[in-house]
Nucleic acid binder design. Structure first.
Lengths: 234, 234
DNA sequence: CCTACCGATCGGTAGG
DNA sequence: CCTACCGATCGGTAGG
């Protein structure tokens, strides 16, 4: 029973406008950074005048905080879903990499910088905790699984803790993130490329850049050791 | 008030002031980013008035470009010196990591962002090339050594090219860079910490986070292999 | 959600 | 290397 007239309910329109502002501002803030985006740019991109923004958000900082909060929550839901799957550590890390390569634009370090230098202390603390809970924790849980299964080295074996591993993972991933304006997903080529990139990222992260030592020796000496089998996750 | 009396020191003073501006601006630009640093902040930190800056640099962009150019050249000289040493790939990478951990503040990605979004196309091209030649090339040369010695996997073996390896290296290193205002070097504790961090970074980069399977096997079987021999570099 | 407008600050210039 | 000052743009407000 749609009771919508030519003019939508004002509440629905307002909510839709609010979503438009959030989505538009997210794109701009993520690409250019907080200071480089003016409230007039955001309003123009939404088809509004600049003062209209202040009907939906108290000020520019509140808008930025809302954008970050919604963005982190959305990403976090996907990461938590992946993290809880019963698949292998390697497979889950690849799924995380694929998700982030597809859905995150630009560097999380730029976001860090803006949060640290542009937000007030209270907002800063709140967003930092949201980042830790929504983004870091789900990925770190995967690494924690790997540590407990002894698939990954612990700190006594020259490894790192799960949170450090997560940050290293995100930083490696940064190298493969698309820079600049977000292009719409190309169906075939780009998607297979993302799958390959995710495999490369996780493989480098887990096994490093070095030739496994028995691989090198196999060419020089008689093989005294069986082949590496990276397929067996456990 | 002392009048300007010695013409001999006039030129030297001017040069010293120029150096002061460059050094001060570098610290501020690196920490806060291009847009977040006003010309008045730079001038104040130098003990000058803001218009005085324009005696030494044409405008803010030219000052930023000069800062980046000098900074990259200085870092590049050190990297080239390390790169040309006859030591092993692993040792040189650790030396690079130690140098960057000691001498670079904040993320190179922030610098990228500023160059890309704040500079004109001509300056952008020039600084990008300086970055590639001074910073990327020397490190990539080390990885290239490793590839040719078959210490590192090539792309057919699931590895990456030397330039990609360099960017991954820099991104991993980002995780360990000190954030925020640069603290002066603390003699003992901080320096040994940097050495340890450099070891961790290179170890993770080369060997990954996973428990090496031969490590697991080595505890079960007799060791049948030696360390990598880096002597065949030349 | 608009028009009109505010003070603050920005990068940069004039002139000595 | 200073004082004085400019136009442009910023985030934000008043009032309907």
């Amino acid at each position: 029973m749609a009771r919508r007239q030519q003019k939508q309910t004002s509440h629905e329109e307002a909510e839709e406008t609010r979503r438009t502002i959030l989505r538009t501002a997210q794109t701009l803030f993520m690409e250019f950074g907080y200071r480089a985006v003016s409230t007039r740019q955001i309003a123009d991109a939404c088809g509004l005048t600049q003062p209209a923004l202040y009907h939906y958000f108290a000020d520019k900082k509140a808008l930025y905080a809302a954008v970050m909060s919604e963005n982190l929550t959305e990403i976090g839901s996907a990461l938590e879903r992946i993290s809880r799957r019963g698949e292998s550590v390697q497979e889950r890390l690849q799924q995380v990499a694929r998700y982030l390569l597809r859905n995150v634009q630009n560097d999380h370090n730029l976001m860090f910088h803006d949060i640290r230098y542009e937000m007030d202390a209270a907002v800063q603390d709140k967003l930092s905790e949201t980042f830790r809970v929504r983004m870091i924790a789900p990925i770190a849980a995967i690494f924690e699984d790997g540590l407990q299964q002894h698939i990954l080295r612990d700190q006594a074996q020259g490894g790192v803790d799960s949170v450090t591993a997560t940050y290293i993972f995100l930083n490696v991933l940064t190298r493969f993130l698309p820079r600049g304006p977000r292009q719409q997903p190309v169906p075939s080529t780009s998607r297979s490329s993302i799958v390959e990139q995710a495999e490369t990222i996780v493989h480098i992260l887990l096994y490093g850049l070095a030739n496994a030592e028995e691989e090198t020796l196999k060419r020089l000496e008689s093989p005294c050791m069986q082949n590496i089998d990276p397929a067996n996750s456990h």
